[in-house]
Computed example of a mutant assay.
Amino acid sequence: MKHVLDRPVWSALATRHQALAQGGELARRYSPSFALFAATAADDAESLQAFADLVGPGDSVIMAQADPIALPAGLSAISTAAAVQMVAEAPLQVVSDERVQRLTQDDVAEMVALASLTKPGPFTSGALSLGDFWGVKAGGQLVAMAGERMKQPGYSELSGVCSHPDVRGGGLGRLLSLFVANQIFARGEVPYLHAYATNAGAIKLYESIGFKLRITINVAVVQRPG
């Protein structure tokens, strides 16, 4: 039996993030202003055709799933990668720090700039529509953040964890990861996350605070030529 996180993008778009989705019962994608992810319900020909219909000329989307990624004619993977999916099944260390503050629409420009500099993964100016984000500022400037992205019944994804190079190594990634994960736990949900399999530093950090490997996820940036 498939787990709800085996196809995390589809599970989110078919349930808690349905209002942010484009598409139908066979294939869906986030509205591009919110996120770049897209998915099929299954790998049959009908679902793949519905997926193809969602990607216009010159457009690209990101797929992420445990199953090998199948593509319809007309679409090609311009890059592929392996990622790990990690879950925190037991409560984590409780942290409290007066520097941590909820980020708002007023912070979006700085959030995008920080993500562009540090490249924690796909990030758009619509990130706050997916879930809450929290950050730490120094001298009035955002220097670290973490938040929530995809949501499925009983689960929320920890995402966007990054720190400015000037403060890297100061423990802010650990602090904010624990803080956001505990926010998720407090709602009665289970936090999970994704990291590229090659990102040994991030994986080591997440393991150190209590996340455990669940599965490997296949990731592909898929494009229709313009």
Rank of each mutant, 00 (worst) to 15 (best):
T104C: 13
V9D: 04
R29G: 07
G147D: 01
S177N: 09
A90I: 05
V136W: 12
V167C: 13
S96N: 09
S47E: 00
A127I: 15
F34D: 06
E157K: 03
T40W: 08
A146L: 10
Q183I: 05
E148D: 05
K212F: 07
Q49T: 14
K212S: 15
H3T: 00
I209Q: 11
I215S: 14
G135H: 00
S31A: 15
K151I: 10
E89H: 06
G169D: 02
S76V: 08
L13D: 00
V222F: 05
V108I: 15
L175V: 01
Y192L: 06
A181V: 06
A127H: 14
I69S: 09
C162T: 07
A83K: 13
L48G: 04
K137S: 12
S96Q: 12
T216F: 13
I203T: 08
R7C: 04
A146V: 02
H164A: 04
S116A: 15
W134F: 15
P8G: 02
A115N: 05
L75Q: 00
S163E: 13
A70L: 09
K212L: 11
P153C: 07
V143S: 09
D67M: 12
S47A: 10
G201E: 12
K2Y: 12
A88M: 05
F179P: 09
M150D: 10
S47R: 02
G154L: 02
G135F: 00
Y206P: 11
A202V: 03
L20V: 00
H17Y: 03
A70S: 15
G74N: 01
S60P: 07
D107T: 03
S47F: 06
V108S: 10
D43P: 08
Y155G: 03
Q65N: 05
G139Y: 11
P57Y: 04
V180F: 05
A83E: 14
P153D: 00
A81K: 12
T104R: 13
I209K: 07
D166M: 08
G23R: 01
M111T: 05
P68Q: 01
A81G: 12
F179H: 14
G58F: 10
M145G: 04
L158N: 00
G74T: 00
A90H: 11
V219D: 05
D44S: 11
K204D: 13
S79A: 13
A109I: 04
A38T: 03
P32T: 02
Q101F: 10
G169F: 01
G58V: 02
A45Y: 06
G188I: 01
L13A: 05
A146Q: 09
S125E: 15
D44K: 10
V61A: 03
V112N: 10
L36T: 15
S47T: 06
T118A: 12
P72K: 02
P153A: 08
R29A: 13
S79I: 03
A38N: 11
I215G: 04
S31V: 14
V180N: 01
H194K: 01
G171W: 04
S129T: 10
P191S: 04
G226W: 10
A144F: 09
K212N: 15
M63I: 12
W134D: 04
E148F: 08
Y206M: 00
L142D: 09
L176Q: 03
A70D: 11
L103M: 06
A146F: 09
L13V: 06
F34K: 03
D67Y: 07
P225Y: 02
L92C: 00
R224I: 02
A109P: 13
L213P: 12
V108L: 10
